[in-house]
Amino acid sequence: MTKTKPSGPRPTPAELEAARGLVIPDVIAPGLRVLFCGINPGLWSGAVGRHFARPGNRFWPALHASGFTPELLTPARQDELLTLGLGISNLVARTTARADELTADEYREGARILAEKAAEYRPAWIAIVGITAYRTAFGRPAAKIGPQDERIADSRVWVLPNPSGLNAHWSATALAEEFARFREVAEADQ
């Protein structure tokens, strides 16, 4: 179930709570260059029906600063990613207030579903946005940020840092640099 736009410019506390457990449709098409795969949507994203929508989330600025997009897109323009050969999915589809509300079983099931999507849509790359989620979902406790040896279906895999504003381990600059490092490899790989 998806949610319509909130009544005002910002979701109210009631609208945020009502967004708990909703699902935001993937932005996906066959043959993408990169399918970005978040951990799961937050309540703000659920309330507005858009990926990486909470103010302070650094996904959209990192995507632009790294050169993936020619201009800074907003969550309302997420469908424009498809024209650039990019898409968005999530390991776990349901919205939560925090990622720590998810179970290891949900992550593992999400990995299975992501593999099905990869087999169907065949993106060249899947970029998992969150190292801890990747480690849990795919049973790779020692995985590091960057390219992975394994593939998901036929898609190559890169793990990026979580762009949430809560991820203090990565500055906005360092995050954009890591996205750019991935972009350079993904573009050279075509």
Rank of each mutant, 00 (worst) to 15 (best):
F52M: 13
Q190V: 13
P163C: 12
A176H: 01
P161L: 03
D154A: 13
E101A: 15
V34E: 04
F59V: 08
P161S: 01
F138L: 13
C37W: 06
L175P: 05
L72T: 01
R181F: 07
A99L: 08
E116K: 14
H51M: 08
A104I: 04
V48N: 01
S164V: 10
E116G: 15
P11V: 11
E177L: 07
G139W: 03
W125Q: 08
Q78S: 11
A19K: 02
P70C: 08
G67V: 03
A172R: 03
E178M: 14
I39W: 05
A176D: 00
G42Y: 03
R54E: 15
E101D: 14
L72K: 05
P55D: 10
G85K: 01
P55S: 09
W170V: 11
R156E: 13
G21N: 03
E71G: 09
F68Y: 14
P141R: 05
R20T: 12
N162L: 12
A111N: 04
H64R: 04
D105I: 00
A186T: 12
W125H: 11
R122Q: 13
S89F: 00
V23D: 00
R156W: 13
A176K: 01
A142D: 15
A142R: 13
R50I: 10
I145F: 04
V129S: 14
A76I: 01
F36E: 10
G87Q: 03
P123V: 08
D154K: 11
T95F: 01
V48Y: 02
A47P: 05
P70V: 07
G8P: 02
E184Q: 08
P6Y: 04
P70G: 10
P9C: 08
A180E: 14
L81M: 10
R151G: 07
W170F: 12
L81C: 00
V157A: 01
M1S: 13
L73D: 07
T69M: 09
R112E: 15
I126A: 02
A104Q: 08
E177P: 02
N167W: 04
A19L: 07
T136N: 11
E177V: 05
I131F: 02
P30A: 13
L102K: 09
H64F: 11
A119M: 02
A188S: 15
Y134T: 08
E187Y: 11
H51F: 10
V129M: 14
V34F: 04
S7T: 10
S66G: 12
T173A: 06
R77F: 09
F36M: 12
E106A: 14
L81V: 04
N162I: 10
A188N: 14
W158Q: 10
R112N: 13
A119P: 02
E184S: 11
A18P: 09
G49W: 01
G87N: 02
